[in-house]
């Protein structure tokens, strides 16, 4: 039997909805384990990618400095990088803040907003800093494939990954392509 494909997954500025939807492949997950093994992923709680990973699935857009580091680690390790879901592809709903200056966002949240006690901007060095704008991941790294949807359905995940595992360029039939 051929060696199993290594898959890593993560959510940057996302809601983990894409990960939930991935699990909608239901019992096919048993078949999936015949094809792949999971590397870094919230599903395994492995914190960093192995040196070589075959497929990286990125959910969410790039909102802060930590997202940048994570995305770069994935790009470095993964042979094939896939932008999964609306946020990774176009920033998604978190990108709504792109229309408000970051200065105002932070001020509203931490300084001047309703009910704020002891107003201050958190400054612990462990906290990632926010980027001026939320970016889709293709503006930061080269992306190999895009799997649209909010979230993409379990069937779309299944089709995409089985195509890749079979060495094919993944394609989706009409009813599996949607942006919402």
């Amino acid at each position: 039997m051929a060696e199993k494909l290594k898959i890593a997954t993560t959510s940057l500025g996302g809601c983990f909805g894409c990960h939930m939807s991935f699990l909608d492949i239901d019992e096919r997950i048993i078949d999936l384990f015949d094809l792949v093994e999971f590397d870094r992923s919230p599903l395994t709680d492995i914190k960093h990618c192995s040196e070589y990973v075959d497929i990286g699935l990125i959910e969410g857009g790039v909102c802060n400095s930590e997202n940048v580091h994570t995305l770069r680690e994935f790009r470095k390790s993964c042979k094939v990088l896939i932008a999964v879901g609306a946020c990774a592809i176009n920033g998604g709903l978190p990108a709504l803040r792109n229309f408000i200056p970051l200065e105002e966002c932070l001020a509203e949240s931490y300084l001047t907003g309703e009910g704020i006690d002891n107003p201050q901007i958190p400054s612990d060095i462990e906290l990632p800093l926010l980027l001026d704008k939320v970016h889709p991941i293709h503006e930061l790294v080269k992306v190999d494939y895009f799997l649209p949807g909010c979230p993409p359905s379990g069937n779309a995940f299944w089709r995409f990954i089985t195509d890749l595992a079979a060495g094919k360029t993944p394609t989706l039939p009409y009813d599996l392509v949607h942006y919402d």
Binding site: S65, P101, E103, L106, I125, E126, L129, D132
Partner: peptide, 27 residues
């Protein structure tokens, strides 16, 4: 590949407002 915008510059507002300049506050 490299981003078309200045990443470190993009942290400037957050850096200024949180008064940080540590190594983790840069990209």
């Amino acid at each position: 590949f490299e981003p078309g915008f200045d990443l470190d510059e993009s942290l400037e507002t957050a850096r200024r407002m949180s008064a940080r300049d540590d190594p983790w506050a840069h990209l």
